[in-house]
């Protein structure tokens, strides 16, 4: 196992007093707490911080740790000295299972025994993960197969992360940023306590035809210059299939046409957002001889001057 330099983890000198250790922990914990931090390795860093603080805040444990001496380097291969029997109090906190082999080799075995026999129960940690779904899945509801890494209690009584496969029924009407709770599928409870819950944060996969704002959908509807000028009935895609929509004569580029109730449904399908078709007038890149002639004729006879 690897030696851990608890002083380095907390960023304090070996001579730091209790107040300095507490202040350093609070500062670092704010930075790396998994509920607060955006750092990639926040969970691991926070676990290390908790472990370091567990030892250094307790004078007896700290004294026992200090007995190892100051010549160890972080990551150095470590075995407890022969006859190791620290005077530090056994660890009895509820987070024992999450600490390292190094910690357990110094304090763990006695602590775990005391912990179990104390009848202590703890609710398992909640787990959070993101799930990406299509707009169609959000509109119609879906069953998704997901694989997560969640904490699990090993046969040795210590926490490990292990993959877990589950199928989740996603209710109709979810939107981006919302959270789904799956009761009892988080980290395992301790001492017979209930499991934590799993929270899935909904993300939408990019859609080739629609942008989303809240429950409204936006679609860039490409039309020809003559459809814009003369009006037309054109097909517009929706999540439930194409529908026909009337383009009023004299429509300009960027005009927003609303298809009521064709956006994303609300929870249980109760209320729906709208679909907005944004007109984009598309001009052919190359013109046939006849088209050129007609456009030229139009340019000659038209009195329309948009820049005046």
């Amino acid at each position: 196992m690897e030696y851990k330099d608890y002083y380095q983890i907390l960023g304090v000198e070996r001579s730091a007093d209790a107040n300095a250790i507490k202040a350093a922990y609070r500062k670092m914990a704010r930075k790396y707490h998994p509920d607060v931090s955006k750092e990639k390795d926040a969970e691991e860093r926070f676990k290390d911080l908790q472990e370091a603080y567990e030892v250094l805040k307790d004078p007896e444990k700290r004294a026992a740790y200090d007995q190892l001496g100051a010549n160890w380097r972080p990551g150095q291969d470590f075995r407890p000295p022969p006859g190791w029997n620290p005077s530090g109090a056994p660890h009895g906190g509820p987070d024992l299972g999450g600490f390292s082999d190094f910690f357990d080799s110094l304090f763990g075995a006695q602590g775990r025994g005391g912990f179990r026999s104390s009848g202590f129960q703890a609710h398992g940690e909640d787990s959070e993960a993101a799930i990406s779904i299509s707009l169609e899945d959000a509109a119609q509801g879906a069953q998704k197969n997901i694989t997560l890494e969640i904490p699990a209690l090993g046969p040795d009584g210590r926490m490990h992360r292990q993959p877990k496969n589950l199928q989740v029924r996603i209710p109709k009407g979810v939107t981006e940023g919302q959270r789904l709770r799956i009761a009892g599928q988080g980290g395992p409870g301790m001492g017979g306590g209930p499991n934590g819950d799993l929270y899935l944060h909904i993300r939408f996969l990019a859609h080739p035809k629609f942008r989303v704002e809240g429950r409204d959908l936006y679609h860039d509807l490409h039309i020809t210059p003559w459809e814009a000028a003369l009006g037309a009935s054109v097909e517009v895609p929706t999540l439930e299939g194409a529908v026909r929509m009337k383009i009023p004569a004299g429509s300009s580029c960027g005009k927003k046409l609303r298809l009521g109730g064709k956006g994303l449904p609300g929870p249980g399908g109760k209320t729906s957002g709208d679909l907005y078709a944004i007109l984009q007038i598309v001009v052919p890149k190359t013109l046939s001889e006849k088209e050129t002639a007609l456009f030229t004729q139009l340019a000659e006879v038209s009195t329309f001057h948009p820049r005046r």
Partner: peptide, 25 residues
């Protein structure tokens, strides 16, 4: 196994006080 997911933001008021405390421990 297939699990039902509950939409957190839209969930109704379904837990009474003692049940809430029990679930929360």
């Amino acid at each position: 196994p297939v699990f039902e997911a509950e939409l957190l933001e839209e969930g109704g008021f379904s837990l009474d006080f003692s049940h809430f405390c029990a679930v929360l421990q």
